[in-house]
Design a protein around this nucleic acid. Structure first.
Lengths: 203, 203
DNA sequence: ATCCGGAGTTACCGGTCAGTAACATAGGTG
DNA sequence: CACCTATGTTACTGACCGGTAACTCCGGAT
């Protein structure tokens, strides 16, 4: 009995809601949303279906929570870039490109989970659709702002081009092996070099 | 009785296999592959499940046939461009851009059906995957050839860029309303103008 | 000690899924 | 005519789906 060091609730695992969301995330992304049943999620979360339904009223709600979490993390990438390079949009842009490069050369990328959800959930009234739409629209606007702040001319056209290039790269990773996605970072750099802002003076 | 003009088998409808494939095509594209059951397909084809299973041994086989048909039609677009403008790769390229414009401004586009299938069918051994991969790889190579024949420098880089832009546009149509996909044709034209082939002489 | 809320367990519901068996009905061919 | 093949029809299987009811259990608060 010497080892009873007052650790009754040592929380060896996070609360069930977190476990469920984490399991859903892994399974949804790996196998697809429609391909994964709630039983499988509950089991992967080391819990049961009842607990799942106490925290998420339905599978659609769980999907919405899953997408909301993904969108929040996507937003945090931009916030982190902004606070790591305050008042330095060029450095933020460079940081974003590095981030893009990491994703596309990861090797385990199965595309943008949010875009994949858009493909799988086509019912017009589905709660996921507005989350998806809002996130992608927000992302595009962030790109526009970034290019504008970085001094590029015609930031909207440039942002659209970069946006589509990136989206295309991620979907292509799922379609064709050895696809053109590997070269997207080089494309971005040469594209930015071509449209380089007129005043690249350093203070 | 004047109208009995010896039309006993007037074939008011195509054979069941064609009807099934056509119904599958419509439903798969509209609602997604996993969201549509074989019963719904059979009913939409004005036949029954048994006949469906006599022509296609399983749902996966039907999916494979569906994708094979789509891929063949996709290939035919290129073949038609080639025979409409023989020995005129510039005109072929222009024709392809018009084709792209039609798709993206259609208003009812739900993305590339083949890419969507890649998102939905993630099982590694699925018969659909090689059809998808082969088609997208073929498409990319066609673009490379077209740009090379049209005299563009670095046709592979250009083809990859155009490929990703187009793929990104089609997936974005499903993600964000009022997305940047509308401007992709202008992007293509300005991009091609920038990388215009050195010898644009006519004959 | 009592209570209570969150979590786990088991069993179940109706519905739908992919796939099959058995049989009836044509139509065309010999 | 008989025969054969393609199609249609009905009913069924077993598995799984999303979702729920009823119950137990446990830990923490009062």
């Amino acid at each position: 009995m010497t080892g009873t060091i007052n650790r009754p609730t040592d929380i060896p695992q996070p609360p069930p809601r977190d476990r469920i969301l984490s399991a859903a995330r892994k399974l949804f992304y790996r196998h697809g949303i429609r391909a994964v049943g709630v039983d499988a999620i509950a089991e992967a979360a080391a819990t049961n279906k009842m607990t799942l339904y106490r925290h998420f009223g339905s599978k659609d709600e769980l999907i919405a929570a899953y997408l909301t979490e993904l969108a929040r993390e996507g937003d945090e990438v931009w916030e982190k870039l902004a606070e790591e390079h305050p008042n330095d949009p060029r450095a933020q842009l460079e940081g974003w490109i590095v981030f893009v490069e990491q994703i596309l050369t990861d090797g385990s990328d199965r595309g943008c989970a949010i875009a994949n959800a858009a493909v799988e959930l086509r019912e017009i009234g589905h709660p996921a659709r507005q989350i998806i739409d809002a996130y992608k629209t927000r992302k595009r606007e962030r790109l526009v702002t970034m290019f504008r702040d970085a001094g590029y001319a015609e930031p909207e056209q440039l942002a659209d081009e970069v946006f589509l290039l990136f989206e295309g790269a991620r979907i292509s990773l799922q379609c064709c092996s050895n696809g053109p996605a590997q070269r997207v970072v080089k494309m971005l750099r040469s594209m930015l070099a071509e449209h380089a802002p007129p005043s690249s003076t350093i203070i």
